[in-house]
Design a protein around this nucleic acid. Structure first.
Length: 905
DNA sequence: TATCTGGAAATATCA
DNA sequence: CTTGATATTTCCAGA
């Protein structure tokens, strides 16, 4: 049910998005900045293409708007009111000066003592920063939220929060609005720079996105105890909770999440997208200052608060920008040369300025590049490829799938460990220079949406005798970033034994101004690693890779079944083959359900696989692959399956592909996979985790397309993969799925997409499919990455695309806004697909689902219904499913919220 | 004594 | 509005 709803939402959002501007990215803008990164073409492309209209206008105006008047949004939407406005203003003020000052003000009111009073200095307590900021003033929060909310509501109406994000045109706008102009401004600037930061948040950039953080900052403070703040998850919550409770501080604010959620999402997403574009544009203009204010404020506050500590304040030149900086400030310039700059926004400056490497070790490349980086450093929510040219950032040893995060009220629960013992290991391949580089690590999301900083979790630096790796902690946009030296003498390899995970109270975060995400059941994270490699041309190449998902909830880790490996990724439609699943929390009465999803997420087909209870172990399950509903498919059909231990205890969707009867079975990857899969740290997991698809990076790894296709990917994590995978094959399918994804994903991601785009961008739109489909070549990988980006774009745009596509198929959302291009969609899908490997799959989409839904897919449909089957595809659905699963949990919540919200409205 | 943990009680939120 | 189910956050206690 929910899923359906969710889906709908997504769709909607997509549509919305489409309408909006997301696209945003103006080539022009992007080009400059991003170029560095990779290919940026994308960016440009995007913008134009997609959304030209909406965004274009908005963007520009928006930007302008932003800069000019904070209140007004780009879109014309009124700025959010109060909350934001206020903030904005402050920001603005601040801008000029430094955020710091302002921040303090803002924050202070609120609360928390924690924050450092002084503004200027900034060193706020880091920790607090996260929350507190928000807490701070309710007002702020309100504003932000309200803004958001409003905005969002606005948006949300359209779609769903979730959705929106991605798509949302708003994103930027939205975000910005609330967030304040500043941020946007920042972003923009950033964008301009490169996209870097991306989304709106860029400012915040980092993580969570800016939005969040910023918002947080602004809002926040509240962190107070949860109770008060907490909002209800339900969107409605907005209303509810907030105010009332408010506990102390913060909260009251507003609606917390709600707005956030919806709005935020939208905002975020959109913002990102659009914002990115805009930003780029703006960036050109430069306004970093402005941005700073806006963006900064929020973030800064937070950041500042939080991290300030580490950071030295701003030191940097950029600092100005940052004034806001604070947050960023986080980083000390030195340390994060790039970062800081980046955030701040002044691109030029940043670029120009060389980064200094504060860290001894770090020194990241002194190169100018770094400097570049900084300016351009992509926002944390941007999607980046894991490899490019000769370079590849790879997770050699994946972290365990479970790691109980600690609350601030608790002591550290130690560093994240590898499944096989030891710690995760990350290595940069292809780097032959003698200059050490800095590996950045932050906690990212693990849901369907695009990868971005996780609002509810922060990396926690572990020190002590047992820690062999030096690290430095900085804050970027409300996101804590651990900087670890990558030394040539160590083969650019780092053992990550210094990273723990801190859980922030949901109530604290949700109250943040820009935060749209819901914390409830949003307990999975990924370790995200980034490295910025200076290039001869002065540019900086940024690579990113995300780990397999890590479940951080004590409860979830103990109860939810988790599939880490599967012995087969595909098999004939007749089924009958035994498949071994490796993972955790399997019970004798665990059920394994195969499902075929329609683009809209509806389950077209569900079949419980036979399980061998005698062979069932907590970490492994032996099942018999059930026959597919349609024995006559002509092309591979992707489906999903999950392990269910009870009502709310089911694993994420895993991908599986049914092959036409006469086709030789392709890969089953038998055992390998499973073997120890679980543990396997090494395993594939890394590759495919959910996100991967999006990211591509991960995927990338697999060099071979072929190989990828099947096995490796598959098992992997399908879940995510699934989603992704599906796409792979057929574009169409993808599309469908995409939508979902998008929805889910959100905005933030979109931004990412942009970034990616950067790299490959333009292509992306166009290309996607191919890319997706074929992962094989290295380049592909890149592509892939791009894809992700693309996807994102897609998302944004895609959303449209999805919608379109999807719609057709799915009933749910028919909306559609846009129409679009399947292409995009495809692209999108591909991205996802990448995961799969799909190899081929492209296939068909089988029918998928027509059954379920409407099926309208134009192309696809065949119906799935059953039987005919011929159509291959499937993919799409899967993704959706996956997403759905994931989303479900998270999204459900969101949906609910949204629903509420809507209702309220 | 300080950490790191595993467990689980106390709260919150959902349904 | 109550109640049971869930999920989150805070505490405890042992190693």
């Amino acid at each position: 049910m929910k899923s359906a709803e969710e889906e709908h939402y997504n769709y909607a959002s997509s549509n919305i998005n489409s309408s909006l501007p997301l696209s945003v990215a103006h080539p022009s803008l992007s080009a400059p900045c991003h170029g560095l990164q990779t290919s940026n073409p994308v960016i440009s492309i995007v913008p134009s293409t997609n959304h030209p209209s909406g965004y274009g206008g908005h963007a520009e105006s928006g930007t302008a708007g932003y800069y000019l008047s904070p209140n007004v949004r780009p879109n014309g939407v009124p700025a959010l009111e109060s909350p934001r406005i206020e903030i904005t203003s402050y920001l603005g003020l601040h801008h000029n000066n430094n955020q710091f000052f302002h921040d303090p003000e803002i924050e202070e009111p609120v609360p928390n003592a924690k924050r450092s009073p002084t503004t200027a200095t900034l060193n706020l307590p880091n920790i607090e920063a996260y929350r507190d900021p928000s807490c701070l003033s309710p007002a702020s929060s309100l504003s932000s939220r309200s803004c958001n909310s409003e905005a969002s509501s606005y948006e949300s109406n359209y779609s769903y929060p979730y959705t929106s994000p991605q798509t949302s045109p708003w994103q930027s706008p939205c975000v910005s609005p609330k967030t304040t102009d500043t941020e946007e401004a920042y972003q923009r600037s950033m964008v301009t720079c490169t996209l870097l930061n991306s989304p709106r948040h860029s400012p915040s950039a980092s993580p969570r996105t800016s939005i969040t953080e910023e918002n947080w900052l602004s809002t926040r403070n509240s962190r107070p105890s949860s109770p008060c703040n907490k909002r209800k998850y339900s969107l409605n919550g907005r209303q509810t909770s907030y105010s009332p409770h408010p506990s102390p501080t913060p909260s009251p604010q507003t609606s917390p999440r709600v707005s956030v959620t919806d709005e935020t999402w939208l905002g975020n997403t959109n913002q990102y997208t659009s914002s990115a574009i805009v930003a780029a544009i703006n960036a050109l203009t430069t306004d970093s200052t402005i941005d700073m204010n806006d963006g900064i404020p929020t973030k800064s506050r937070r950041t500042a608060i939080d991290h300030t500590q580490s950071m030295t304040l701003k030191t940097e030149p950029s600092g100005e920008d940052h004034g806001t900086i604070s947050p960023t400030a986080d980083l000390s310039p030195e340390e994060f040369p790039g970062f800081q700059h980046i955030r701040k926004g002044s691109f030029c400056d940043q670029y120009l300025s060389v980064p200094q490497h504060p860290y001894p070790w770090a020194k990241t490349k002194p190169l100018s590049p770094s400097s570049y980086m900084s300016p351009s450093l992509p926002a944390l929510d941007w999607q980046l490829p894991s490899h490019s040219g000769p370079y590849e950032l790879r997770i050699e040893v994946q972290p365990k799938s479970h790691h109980r995060a600690h609350y601030e009220t608790e002591g550290s629960r130690g560093a994240v460990k590898a499944s096989a013992g030891g710690h995760p290991v990350v290595q940069l391949h292809g780097y032959l220079e003698s200059e050490p580089l800095t590996l950045q690590l932050f906690i990212g999301t693990a849901d369907d949406r695009l990868l971005r900083p996780h609002a509810f979790y922060q990396v926690h630096r572990i020190t002590g005798k047992t820690v062999s790796t030096t690290s430095h902690e900085t804050i970027l946009s409300n996101t804590k970033v651990l900087e670890i030296p990558l030394l040539p003498e160590n083969n650019m390899r780092a053992i990550i034994d210094c990273a723990g995970i801190l859980k922030l109270r949901n109530s604290d975060i949700e109250l943040r101004k820009g935060e749209t995400d819901i914390g409830r059941k949003n307990t999975r994270v990924r370790l995200v690693f980034r490295v910025h490699i200076p290039q001869p041309n002065g540019r900086t190449l940024s690579l990113q890779v995300a780990s397999n998902p890590i479940e951080c909830s004590q409860r979830s880790a103990q109860e939810l079944p988790l599939v880490e490996k599967q012995s087969a990724d595909s098999y004939h439609v007749m089924g009958g083959k035994k498949m071994i699943l490796n993972g955790h929390n399997f019970l004798q009465d665990s059920k394994v359900i195969f499902v075929e999803k329609a683009p809209d997420g509806h389950h077209v087909w569900e079949m419980e696989a036979k399980t061998d209870k005698e062979l069932c172990k907590p970490t492994s399950l032996v099942i018999e692959i059930p026959p597919f509903r349609n024995q006559r498919i002509t092309s591979p059909v992707q489906v999903n399956f999950y392990v269910c231990n009870g009502k709310r205890k089911r694993s994420q969707y895993q991908l599986f592909t049914y092959l036409p009867a006469n086709v030789p079975v392709i890969k089953t990857e038998p055992t390998d996979d499973y073997e120890p899969a679980q543990t396997c740290g090494p395993r594939n997991q890394g590759l495919s985790p959910l996100s991967k698809p999006y990211y591509s990076q991960q995927i990338m790894m697999p060099p071979d397309p072929g190989s990828c296709l099947v096995t490796g990917f598959t098992s992997c994590q399908q879940r995510n993969a699934v989603m992704s995978s599906s796409p792979s094959s057929s574009p169409k399918l993808h599309d469908l799925s995409s939508p979902a994804y998008k929805c889910i994903t959100n905005p933030g991601h979109s931004h990412l997409g942009l970034q990616q785009t950067v790299g490959g961008v333009p292509a992306i739109q166009e290309v996607p499919r191919s890319i997706v489909v074929h992962p094989s070549s290295p380049d592909q990988s890149s592509h892939i990455m791009l894809q992700p980006q693309v996807s994102q774009h897609l998302s944004s745009s895609c959303s449209l695309g999805y919608q379109q596509t999807l719609y057709p198929n799915s009933p749910s959302s028919p909306v559609p806004s846009v129409t679009q291009e399947p292409t995009y969609l495809q692209s999108c899908s591909p991205t996802r697909s990448s995961v799969m490997g799909q190899q081929q799959l492209p296939n068909v989409q089988r029918n998928e689902s027509p059954a379920n839904q409407p099926l309208p897919l134009p192309e696809l449909h065949e119906d799935s219904n059953h039987n005919l089957a011929p159509i291959p595809v499937t993919i799409k659905r899967e993704r959706e499913e996956l997403d759905q699963l994931y989303l479900d949990d998270v999204n459900e919540i969101i949906r609910n919220d949204l629903s509420s919200t809507n209702v309220h409205s």
